[in-house]
Design a protein around this nucleic acid. Sequence first.
DNA 1: TGCAAATGGTTTCATATGAAACTATAACGT
DNA 2: ACGTTATAGTTTCATATGAAACCATTTGCA
Lengths: 164, 164
Amino acid sequence: MPAKRKSASATAEHAPLQLEHFLPYRLSILSNTVSQAIADDYQRRYDISVTEWRVMAVLARFEGLSAREVAERTAMDKVAVSRALARLVGAGRVSRVTHDDDKRRSVLGLTEAGWRMHDEVAPMARARERELLARLDAEERAWLTRILDKLLSDGNGNPEAANR
Amino acid sequence: MPAKRKSASATAEHAPLQLEHFLPYRLSILSNTVSQAIADDYQRRYDISVTEWRVMAVLARFEGLSAREVAERTAMDKVAVSRALARLVGAGRVSRVTHDDDKRRSVLGLTEAGWRMHDEVAPMARARERELLARLDAEERAWLTRILDKLLSDGNGNPEAANR
DNA sequence: TGCAAATGGTTTCATATGAAACTATAACGT
DNA sequence: ACGTTATAGTTTCATATGAAACCATTTGCA
């Protein structure tokens, strides 16, 4: 057999992983580049982080949530939510009052300023998503949705994950 | 029209994002849960992080790389690689010597101990990947590969990303 | 009632991470 | 040869992150 270099270790006997074909690795790369690309749009412009934006996004859909509920819906842990809220409230983008019947809970919502920002960022985010999906044809897009639904159902995603 | 609650803001006029259908968000959730699940396998057991494991994985495939080349192939930045290498060398899992012709570069490779660990972790990682993919049927798996190839080619992934 | 356990949220602490500055060596142009 | 620029890699610093401890309030129940 023709002698190759390579210290005889990086060969069959060790069966090294091929990172570039390893699904978890590929997902991680894709997820990071995509999120980063989108975040770059508003990060600087509005001085807001991805986690903060996610909090705003759920508050735009569901007014009056508590912090815990926000954590559930964003799949973030409660520490992250607490911190994001601190900044958002500080920046006047989110309002927070104590729940009438349960003084532990807070009742959250977007402020006027929060809504204004939301209404600028949401279309941008959607546009970026469209750009990304434009690289697939209709059939591929349909499969992607289906596959993600499947992989995210059950153990993953947030549904039925009690607290965090 | 029938009056609904909800402060009249979270409605059509604002078109809030539906996080749970937003591709970047879904990718992020999936990527995190998958990576975490796999990492849990070896994290505690071998006291090694995901980034360190990735470095080991490429060194298993390509002996004698420099740190920069490792960074390229793992899509990690050079600071992360530098730190991972420091720990790996310290733990006796990676060997590092200075390149003969270029004293800036290091020449990296797995040690005996590194190989032993690699040979235990790699099959575990592959098994986890198989479990994940087992939730899809053959057709879906094929589409997923194709879609990821497409989305990762060009701007994303590491190919042609000069340095970082 | 009154007290143990649970829950909502925040703070603390230890670790992870990236950008920018820095050190050492090499490459390039004159 | 010699200074300028580029490259490999490390360190520093500021920020991000999560687990665990913590405080306040509420719930469950004897």
